[in-house]
Design a protein around this nucleic acid. Structure first.
Lengths: 142, 142
DNA sequence: TTCTTTGTAACTAAGTCTGTTACATTAAGC
DNA sequence: GCTTAATGTAACAGACTTAGTTACAAAGAA
């Protein structure tokens, strides 16, 4: 069960909010979002809570409660969502410090960091090129 | 402890093999590699075993045993290593099938797959641009 | 004040990753 | 053939991640 579907859940929730908004529904409760994603409402609250802290959605409490987008769907990229829900780096360095008396152990960490930074940058650039509006369009259109 | 350092360990091992080879040592045992990476020899055997199945290293048993590169360091890319040691995709889709009666739940999976495929492709292109020779050069040079 | 939902804590269950011990298997060299 | 040192693997422990669930205090529009 430990596969990482947090980005999937968050993007799904946002696309559903975007569609609901387009159809005139002002907000959705976490129960309504959970029904589309097919998971527990608490999972949705946790995910949308992270998106709220990132400024991507806002929440209304009291009467007529629920979640709504804080920006236009075309102004939210998948990269924004990724940054909001994924905190850990793609690749980790050594758990234990490598042997500094070996020339490789001594210099490899900055070399690897350079490689990993380039790879993450490429990934981020690609994710930044797709918006929630794009995802919704592809979801409905294809 | 569950952070993913498999790529780090594998690249480190290969860089160390490349350097040893350049210095005239024909092969290294998993104990010797483990001493540089600072981990258990079994971890190294598991990692190098995957690289062997991918055709990146070869192993010699019996007398004078140990591991050596099966290709020149400039002909092994970090992408080759990534493919050898990382089997799981970067992002997972929903654990449970989304609600197919919701238009978003119905169409979002192929839309997400497109986004994820593009991101992985960008990552792979970047990893494919760096060889073990490059990593070793940066490790020793900088 | 009411009333529905959010926000969160606490817990379970499943899975990943590193590290460790133990041991059968391998094969080059004598 | 025998010897011998290292490989290949199984089995397990321990720390951590993630999804899912229950329960309940806090919020806040009407």
């Amino acid at each position: 069960m430990a596969a990482n579907s947090r980005l999937t859940i968050a993007v799904h929730a946002l696309a559903w909010l975007a569609l609901a908004q387009r159809d005139g529904r002002r907000q959705l409760t976490s129960d309504q979002v959970a029904a589309s994603v097919n998971t527990n409402p608490v999972i949705i609250r946790r995910s949308l809570g992270e998106l709220r802290r990132a400024g991507l959605v806002s929440v209304r409490r009291g009467a007529n409660p629920g979640w709504s987008l804080a920006r236009r769907p075309e102004d939210i990229t998948v990269l924004d969502v990724y940054d909001a829900v994924e905190s850990r780096p793609l690749f980790a360095l050594h758990h234990a410090e490598p042997n500094l008396e070996c020339p490789v152990g001594q210099g490899i960490r900055p070399a690897l960091q350079t490689v990993y930074a380039g790879a993450e940058q490429a990934l981020r650039a690609e994710l930044g090129d797709t918006s929630i509006a794009d995802v919704l369009h592809e979801t409905l259109g294809a």
